Computed example of a mutant assay.
Amino acid sequence: MSAIDLTRPHNLPLAEAKTKVQHVADQIAAKFDVDCAWDGDMLNFSHSGVDGHITVDAKSVHVFAELGFMLSMMKGPIEDAIGRYLDDEFS
């Protein structure tokens, strides 16, 4: 399996950071057809071929996703898209 592991710092209140993460998750869900659900400060997502989470804390946002065989061949474009979404919200 191939993994995506991205972290972005932030200086936002936790509630605002979570709102921005939800916006990122909405974009990811629309583009990659994944299901998302919050569990505390962690947004879990999954779909055939991908499982992961986005964790929000007081200082950073961390995205971790494990890609199955078929999606691992597209790791670069997927990682770039997620990175752009994070940069748009947290830079």
Results as ranks from 00 to 15, higher is better:
residue 9 P to W: 05
residue 9 P to L: 10
residue 9 P to A: 11
residue 9 P to H: 12
residue 9 P to K: 09
residue 9 P to M: 09
residue 10 H to P: 06
residue 10 H to E: 07
residue 10 H to C: 07
residue 10 H to I: 02
residue 10 H to V: 02
residue 10 H to N: 05
residue 10 H to R: 00
residue 10 H to G: 07
residue 11 N to H: 09
residue 11 N to W: 04
residue 12 L to S: 10
residue 12 L to A: 10
residue 12 L to P: 04
residue 12 L to R: 00
residue 13 P to G: 06
residue 13 P to L: 08
residue 13 P to K: 08
residue 14 L to E: 13
residue 14 L to A: 11
residue 14 L to K: 12
residue 14 L to G: 06
residue 14 L to R: 12
residue 14 L to N: 09
residue 15 A to K: 05
residue 15 A to L: 12
residue 15 A to N: 05
residue 15 A to Y: 06
residue 16 E to G: 02
residue 16 E to D: 15
residue 16 E to F: 08
residue 16 E to N: 07
residue 16 E to L: 13
residue 17 A to D: 08
residue 17 A to C: 06
residue 17 A to H: 03
residue 17 A to K: 02
residue 18 K to P: 03
residue 18 K to A: 07
residue 19 T to V: 01
residue 19 T to C: 00
residue 19 T to F: 08
residue 19 T to A: 14
residue 20 K to D: 08
residue 20 K to M: 09
residue 20 K to V: 07
residue 20 K to G: 06
residue 20 K to E: 08
residue 20 K to N: 11
residue 21 V to E: 05
residue 21 V to I: 11
residue 21 V to L: 10
residue 22 Q to R: 03
residue 22 Q to F: 10
residue 22 Q to W: 10
residue 22 Q to I: 01
residue 22 Q to N: 11
residue 22 Q to A: 13
residue 23 H to A: 15
residue 23 H to S: 14
residue 23 H to D: 14
residue 23 H to V: 01
residue 24 V to T: 06
residue 25 A to M: 12
residue 25 A to P: 00
residue 25 A to V: 10
residue 25 A to S: 10
residue 25 A to W: 06
residue 26 D to M: 01
residue 26 D to I: 00
residue 26 D to R: 03
residue 26 D to N: 15
residue 26 D to P: 01
residue 26 D to G: 11
residue 26 D to Y: 04
residue 27 Q to P: 00
residue 27 Q to K: 12
residue 27 Q to T: 02
residue 28 I to S: 07
residue 28 I to Y: 09
residue 28 I to Q: 02
residue 28 I to F: 09
residue 29 A to D: 08
residue 30 A to C: 00
residue 31 K to C: 06
residue 31 K to G: 09
residue 31 K to N: 15
residue 32 F to H: 13
residue 32 F to Q: 11
residue 32 F to K: 05
residue 32 F to A: 12
residue 32 F to G: 10
residue 32 F to R: 09
residue 32 F to D: 12
residue 33 D to C: 00
residue 33 D to I: 00
residue 33 D to W: 01
residue 33 D to L: 08
residue 34 V to N: 05
residue 34 V to R: 04
residue 34 V to Q: 01
residue 34 V to Y: 04
residue 35 D to T: 15
residue 35 D to M: 03
residue 35 D to V: 12
residue 35 D to P: 00
residue 35 D to W: 02
residue 35 D to C: 03
residue 35 D to R: 09
residue 35 D to G: 11
residue 36 C to W: 07
residue 36 C to V: 15
residue 36 C to S: 14
residue 36 C to Y: 07
residue 36 C to G: 03
residue 36 C to H: 01
residue 37 A to M: 13
residue 37 A to Y: 10
residue 37 A to P: 02
residue 37 A to L: 10
residue 37 A to W: 08
residue 37 A to S: 15
residue 38 W to F: 13
residue 38 W to Q: 04
residue 38 W to G: 06
residue 38 W to D: 08
residue 38 W to H: 10
residue 39 D to K: 13
residue 39 D to L: 01
residue 39 D to H: 13
residue 39 D to R: 09
residue 40 G to Y: 12
residue 40 G to S: 11
residue 40 G to I: 12
residue 40 G to Q: 03
residue 40 G to A: 05
residue 40 G to P: 07
residue 41 D to T: 15
residue 41 D to S: 13
residue 41 D to M: 04
residue 41 D to F: 09
residue 41 D to K: 08
residue 42 M to N: 11
